[in-house]
């Protein structure tokens, strides 16, 4: 069985996180993030580690981890494609993109490819409504203005083990007429 622990440097960092707040309970979210970054998920044993590290009841950590959707309570693919299908993305073709990705990878939203490379999720608004449709990759890079060609390119990049580049938000001013 895989053993989960934080090394000395990580424990020191956790102490610094705790120091930002009046109590250690408040550090539960940042430390869950740290754990997810390190282990790729916060499965029960990782939650147990977080509880132990912060001296919190395990049930409390479980309650928190299960409340917030970005914590992966089970193992996910190496790249999690969070395709926004909410409101602006919905009306700008978010579902078309989702279905295209599903077809392309041969899995449905909520599933992971057999090789463990990709998971797809249909997610709520990611706050990039003006650049719809869009998706986020593994809680990280936003890929805006999706179309089939762009999806193909992104997946190709990911298959090579690279993240797509960060796209700055387009600075908008009205066209002076």
């Amino acid at each position: 069985m895989e053993k989960f622990e934080f090394n000395k440097a990580e424990r020191d960092h956790i102490e610094k996180i705790i120091a930002r707040y009046p109590d250690s309970q408040s550090a539960v979210m940042p430390v869950l993030w740290m754990a997810q970054e390190k282990f790729g998920h916060v499965e029960p044993d990782v939650q147990k580690l977080v509880a132990k590290t912060l001296d919190l009841p395990e049930a409390h950590v479980y309650g928190v981890a299960s409340f917030y959707t970005q914590y992966y309570k089970e193992k996910m693919g190496k790249y999690v494609l969070d395709v926004c299908t909410c409101l602006s993305c919905q009306v700008c073709g978010g579902y078309d993109m989702l279905h295209y990705i599903e077809e392309k990878l041969g899995i449905k939203a909520g599933e992971t490819t057999e090789d463990g490379m990709f998971s797809i999720q249909s997610v709520e608004c990611l706050g990039a409504c003006g650049y719809a449709p869009m998706m986020q990759i593994t809680n990280d890079i936003y890929v805006n203005h999706l179309d089939k060609a762009k999806v193909d390119k992104v997946i190709e990049t990911l298959k090579q083990g690279k993240m797509p580049e960060f796209e700055p938000i387009p600075m908008r001013v009205a066209e002076k007429s």
Binding site: D23, Q25, S26, P30, L32, Y68, Q70, Y71
Partner: peptide
């Protein structure tokens, strides 16, 4: 300090945001 949320719309509600900052369910 920056505190990073983790996917919960309700945490935009001010009291829920405080609960979240205190390391609880929002």
């Amino acid at each position: 300090y920056v505190h990073m949320g983790a996917g919960a719309y309700i945490c935009g509600e001010e009291s829920s945001l405080m609960e979240s900052l205190e390391g609880k369910r929002g």
